[in-house]
Design a binder for these strands. Structure first.
Lengths: 256, 256
DNA sequence: CGGCCGCTTGAGGTCCATCAAGTCAGGTGG
DNA sequence: CCACCTGACTTGATGGACCTCAAGCGGCCG
């Protein structure tokens, strides 16, 4: 039996996780939802720790994350790793595959996970039948881009404590959007080494930073669960700004 | 093949810089080229050092870079800056503006520059009349995304020397694509402080790294011009891999 | 000429990496 | 049941990469 974390596709609409995501940007038509649902009929299941694709693999399709958590990363030739993104249901996974012959990044499953392949012919069909969906995907990519640049700024210009704090807040916010609640306590689902690989730190130093955040009363930890005690202080320490507000997409033309 | 100076020449096709860029991904139809040319009829000129938009500004349009060099950056509240990207003719500038109400990044001109605004209604029209162009923009964004993740990995996981070297190689390659030549000598057009802000270093340390690269015979500097003497060695020192090869977009449907 | 900006170079300090133990929980096999 | 292993976490000591501060230099421009 698969153990799917954090949530079964609660954000899925009409059987499509991507529809759930895009629906938050613009209200989808029935035709659009049906088209997305058809794509996600065919799925692929991954065990926790499994690798969906490795860098430099020959690839011709990307994926839609349906259940579980995944991550994308790159390996440097000294053996160190940089985690680029954590992927949750509704996210587009390995999207650059549509453009590159060889995968630019590795994707692996942090928990048992389900993805739906989206190959080039399907994407081309989508472009012809439902061009607005492609525009919405492009919009979704912009949001991901801003997340990437925020992380770049954090890694390039902020302290270790700030980077760790920002990652905690980002993950908490993503989980919150998924399950719709305002929980302050959640299971991180990452080892300290993974936190380090995402923030450009060593696992040892991540540990010290978590301890420091704990000693300063911003977070609490117990049995793998993490509680944000003083969100305001943590946001200040982390230079964190949530950008989820301030989206505007009602100017797009009607869909089909 | 056009052969033009990067800063003031035009890699523009039929009067459109973006067409020049997208044309490298898939051969554009006359209709598509005309549509892009129409967009770039209206332009905006920026003096060197001018700011096109500041973070948090209310924005409703993005831009196409037509001439000169620009950069996008974010400011942190301790006053430090992270440069996110350098922008050359044909690049999409501030694309997230189409999705966000408030600009997520600052854009300013490194040289005198020309941009063409692309507002939401125009984009919406493009989506209806030439959906394939939107797909090509999405493809172009994937390439930019991979550049961003490469830089994230560099900043997070490589030494100062490697980061500076990688930036030099990246800029050289971009200039080379623009003017089509194989010159090894070029004018960087950046202060050492700007190099630092792009790589997550201080200007002082950038200086030392440049000196070191020079002493090791990989580069030469004179009067603001930079020459790559030993490209192989520099690539090794910088962990650099050019990803420009390996693109594949012939699977897209015909354009109109 | 003076002022400013960018570059250069040195000295000293800090943040984070590295190395090295050691704890603890869970799993496995006897 | 205990012995043993493994993986993640913890903690200390040490060192190095990079930052900070400071001063001097040269070119450019009013």
């Amino acid at each position: 039996m698969l153990n799917i974390h954090p949530l079964w596709g609660t954000s899925c609409v009409q059987g499509s996780c991507l529809a759930g995501r895009l629906n938050a940007l613009a209200v989808l038509t029935n035709g659009e939802q049906a088209a997305l649902a058809r794509i996600e009929e065919r799925t692929r299941t991954l065990r926790r720790g499994a690798t969906l694709q490795r860098e430099h693999d020959a690839v011709a399709e990307c994926y839609i994350a349906c259940r579980g958590t995944l991550m994308s990363s790159v390996l440097l030739d000294d053996g160190s790793r940089q985690i680029l993104a954590f992927l949750y249901p509704g996210d587009l996974v390995a999207f650059p595959n549509l453009v590159y012959r060889a995968a630019p990044e590795t994707v692996s499953a942090l928990t048992d996970a389900v993805v739906a392949p989206l190959d080039r012919p399907t994407f081309a069909g989508l472009l012809q039948d439902h061009p607005r969906l492609v525009a919405l995907m492009l919009a979704s990519q912009q949001i991901e881009r801003v997340e990437l640049t925020d992380r770049l700024a954090a890694v390039g210009r902020t302290s270790a404590k700030a980077r760790v704090g920002a990652l905690l807040l980002e993950i908490r916010n993503r989980l919150r959007v998924l399950d719709g609640t305002g929980v302050k306590s959640f299971s991180l689902g990452l080892t300290q080494e993974e936190i380090g690989d995402a923030t450009g730190l060593t696992a040892v130093h991540v540990n010290r930073m978590l301890r420091q955040l704990e000693e300063e009363g911003m977070i609490a930890r117990e049995a793998g669960r993490l509680t944000i005690l003083d969100e305001r202080a943590l946001q200040r320490a982390a230079n964190y700004s949530d950008r989820r507000a301030g989206l505007e997409l009602d100017w797009l033309p009607q869909g089909r």
